[in-house]
């Protein structure tokens, strides 16, 4: 079983959900992002999702766009992302990588899989790669023992949902709302329905993302999902802070609040 699978199993045994926290690589700097992700782990985030910054992130809202722009303007390269993954994996927390497809294609799919595995990454979340276009990645992930997380959406038909989860390994990412990333005041009614549809199709754990920003929302989502995925709300703590230290402090506070939330699932 993959390291992500172990984390989900352990949380399930404890009667809670896994907390996945997302941060773009190289934001606000390479070292700053390592510090941020380490702080998140120390404050109770179970799994770190490292997003490779991309110039045209069509699934992301304004917060992640801005953080990605800052990282790219700072000159972060794909090779830096691998270094960041290695550093964060050294904390012991599983590190999954979220990436738009073009950076991987340009690095070379097989080469990236090899280097990701060597850095201690568990696998990829691919927001703009559907299984039909993923031939090379399916082969490379098999070759290097990496997890594959494709997204399912409320608009996915039953047939597509079954096909998609059959190609997943590690966990399934359910997009709770029809829309881009970003914290919202309410999570959607569609999410529990989607999660139960995924459960009918697979034994794999299901993480729910898009829209979660508070401990209370995390508790709500933990009530029906195996994993709670938080990105924009955490990133905003760094964006809004006057300096990195203040940002890290705010990041720890929110991480702890969310960690508390996933330990008190609303039933």
């Amino acid at each position: 079983m993959s390291r992500i699978g172990v984390a989900f199993d352990k949380a399930r045994a404890d009667g809670r959900a896994v907390l996945v926290g997302c941060m773009p690589a190289g934001f606000p700097t390479v070292d700053g992002s390592i510090a941020a992700m380490t702080a998140m782990v120390e404050a109770g985030v179970d799994v770190i999702e490292v997003e490779i910054p991309y110039s045209d992130p069509v699934m992301d809202g304004p917060v992640i766009q801005k953080a990605s722009d800052i990282a790219l303007a700072g000159g972060v390269r794909t090779a830096d992302t691998l270094r960041i993954i290695e550093a964060v994996a050294a904390t012991g927390a599983p590190v999954v990588t979220m990436t738009y497809w073009n950076p991987i294609e340009q690095y070379g799919v097989d080469a990236f899989a090899r280097d990701l595995a060597a850095a201690g990454g568990t696998g990829l979340i691919t927001p703009d790669l559907i299984p039909e276009e993923a031939g090379e990645w399916l082969a490379a992930s098999e070759a290097y023992g990496l997890d594959r997380t494709f997204l399912v959406s409320p608009s996915s038909t039953d047939a597509r949902l079954r096909m998609t989860v059959e190609h997943c390994r590690g966990f399934v990412y359910a997009t709770a709302i029809m829309g881009v990333t970003g914290a919202r005041s309410q999570t959607s009614d569609a999410a529990p329905v989607l999660v139960s549809r995924v459960r009918e199709a697979t034994e794999l754990p299901v993480g729910v993302g898009l829209g979660v920003g508070t401990g209370a929302q995390a508790a709500t989502v933990a009530g029906y999902a195996d994993g709670v995925i938080v990105g924009s709300a955490l990133i905003r703590r760094l964006l809004d802070a006057p300096d990195l230290d203040a940002g890290l402090a705010a990041l720890r506070t929110l991480s702890a609040e969310l960690a508390e939330g996933v330990r008190n699932p609303a039933r």
């Binding site: 497809w101 276009e133 494709f150 997204l151 608009s155 996915s156 597509r160």
Partner: peptide, 20 residues
Amino acid sequence: SAGHFGRFGGRFVPEALVAA
């Protein structure tokens, strides 16, 4: 039928758009 012109084309989109 999947929109490929040789090695080009296809669908590199969020799953949310596939149904549409």
